[in-house]
Design a protein around this nucleic acid. Sequence first.
DNA 1: CCTATTTGTTAGTGAAGCATACAATCGAGC
DNA 2: GCTCGATTGTATGCTTCACTAACAAATAGG
Lengths: 153, 153
Amino acid sequence: MAQSALIESKDGAGHGPASLDSVLGFHIRLAHGAVYRHFTETFATLGLTQKQVSTLWLVAEMPGIAQSELGNRLRMDRATAMSIVSRMQERDYLWRERCPSDGRKQLLHLTDAGKKALEEAKACIKEHERWLKSRFTSDEVKKLVEMLARIHE
Amino acid sequence: MAQSALIESKDGAGHGPASLDSVLGFHIRLAHGAVYRHFTETFATLGLTQKQVSTLWLVAEMPGIAQSELGNRLRMDRATAMSIVSRMQERDYLWRERCPSDGRKQLLHLTDAGKKALEEAKACIKEHERWLKSRFTSDEVKKLVEMLARIHE
DNA sequence: CCTATTTGTTAGTGAAGCATACAATCGAGC
DNA sequence: GCTCGATTGTATGCTTCACTAACAAATAGG
């Protein structure tokens, strides 16, 4: 892609990064954007977003997880988790169960339709991940995941 | 598509990655979210978003850049670039100049207020980057930037 | 001149994140 | 048992951003 002409920089000034290209956060943002775009393309037929797939996936891995715990793990606040869970419920992909031991909590479970959708989604994810990981060796993927985890953990 | 990395862990059946934790895109999303949140916090007083700072920064580095070129470099479509540039113009941070040699283009320039805002923003970015990079050695930062660039370039 | 492309503009849609307020529930301490 | 504070879910509204579609103006190439 374009070799930017922003290379010449006032390095001596000491007033922060010289060029936009040297800002780590900038690259994280662009990388995320590229991944997000390809994801949306891949999932156009299924009509699912990253957050929605993550939600279905996590509920499948931890059936009966509370809505609040889902939000914690996916780094969403209550309101955001609420709207995503509600949307998945409207589609009949999951259902809420009032927790018998703690009446405040809503426990989440996938419906059969949700399990089926997740299976399809996982196939798409596999393609998506292949596209993404094709840039790296397996050692690099491991290193990249480990470094990214240091950011969000 | 290089020699990669389709080492899909234990899942002989070919049904995609086994756990959400092994999905690279998932970690990119969470890392981006964490960075975005810290950025927003850091820039609360300035009232600027990542996209807005990137825009100001890029216009400062390339005065007279066309709106379309700005969009290309920051990976925004025309409509998104339009709304961000308009917002920055409303704040008197930049102004548009009709291109004399190509009447379709709008050339962008920072105002004095925009230059001042960018200087403040760069100081905040410095803090933000310090927070972000504190997790890594300088070699790791270099490697990380290089790998992320492979994704968005 | 005619046509296709590029660029900017406007309007509308939708997902997400965030803040706030409110209700229900739970737990701890009195 | 009772009150008080914290947790959890819910509802509402606001903002940013990405995308689409349509349209107008200017350009480029035949």
